[in-house]
Simulated scan of single mutants.
Amino acid sequence: MISIKYHSGIYTLETKLTLPISVDEAWEFFSSPENLCRMTPKHMNFRITSGKPESMYRGQIISYQLSPIPGIRTNWVTEITQVDEQKYFVDEQRFGPYSMWHHEHRFIETSEGVLMTDKVSYKLPFGFLGRFSHAVFVKKQLMHIFSFRSQVLSSLF
């Protein structure tokens, strides 16, 4: 399930996915920034540029390059701002294509495995042009990225 809502100039994307694994396994996989490469569509040419990342920790800065549009590369820098081990972590964009990007990752153990919830609050630059680009391009791209991610995770686990 993926949904996107608009409120007060901010978009919020939410996804939920249950994986038949333990919280320990989920945390081990998601707390390694290197696994982002596995969960991003190949055509986006996603790569970490800040060196081989350590396991995630509060205050960690990670830089990436990716191609949101074929032939155009952009830099993106995020900071891990909150970590509650095996429960949730938050990454926030410090530099990149969005005016704001706040991504919460939550993990809840259930009888069927782990319920993973992503909540991304984001804002695009350029006012009306940003809202227009969201309607024409950004929304579809984010839906594709998070659908791809769900497919990869379902096949891995």
Rank of each mutant, 00 (worst) to 15 (best):
residue 17 L to M: 07
residue 77 V to D: 02
residue 3 S to L: 04
residue 96 G to A: 02
residue 44 M to I: 08
residue 53 P to D: 04
residue 153 L to N: 10
residue 65 Q to T: 15
residue 110 T to G: 07
residue 102 H to V: 06
residue 19 L to H: 04
residue 154 S to D: 00
residue 57 Y to S: 05
residue 6 Y to W: 09
residue 109 E to M: 03
residue 122 Y to P: 00
residue 122 Y to V: 11
residue 10 I to T: 14
residue 5 K to T: 15
residue 138 V to P: 01
residue 119 K to P: 00
residue 91 D to Y: 05
residue 91 D to K: 09
residue 21 I to E: 03
residue 21 I to R: 13
residue 59 G to M: 08
residue 111 S to K: 10
residue 35 N to W: 01
residue 31 S to Q: 12
residue 77 V to Y: 00
residue 148 F to H: 14
residue 124 L to C: 07
residue 116 M to G: 08
residue 33 P to W: 04
residue 46 F to R: 07
residue 46 F to T: 03
residue 58 R to W: 01
residue 106 R to T: 11
residue 149 R to Y: 07
residue 147 S to V: 02
residue 106 R to A: 10
residue 53 P to T: 06
residue 111 S to E: 12
residue 112 E to V: 01
residue 131 R to Q: 13
residue 150 S to W: 01
residue 5 K to I: 13
residue 29 F to H: 13
residue 153 L to D: 08
residue 109 E to A: 14
residue 4 I to K: 06
residue 29 F to S: 11
residue 104 E to L: 01
residue 99 S to Q: 14
residue 138 V to A: 10
residue 152 V to L: 03
residue 154 S to K: 13
residue 71 G to I: 11
residue 145 I to V: 15
residue 102 H to C: 01
residue 101 W to N: 01
residue 135 A to K: 11
residue 111 S to V: 09
residue 117 T to H: 01
residue 6 Y to C: 00
residue 15 T to K: 02
residue 73 R to N: 09
residue 133 S to W: 06
residue 141 Q to W: 02
residue 10 I to L: 11
residue 26 A to V: 10
residue 87 K to S: 10
residue 30 F to I: 02
residue 13 L to N: 10
residue 141 Q to V: 15
residue 119 K to F: 00
residue 17 L to S: 07
residue 113 G to F: 08
residue 152 V to R: 14
residue 76 W to K: 00
residue 23 V to T: 15
residue 83 V to W: 08
residue 129 L to H: 06
residue 38 R to H: 06
residue 143 M to N: 05
residue 31 S to N: 11
residue 104 E to N: 00
residue 105 H to I: 05
residue 80 I to E: 02
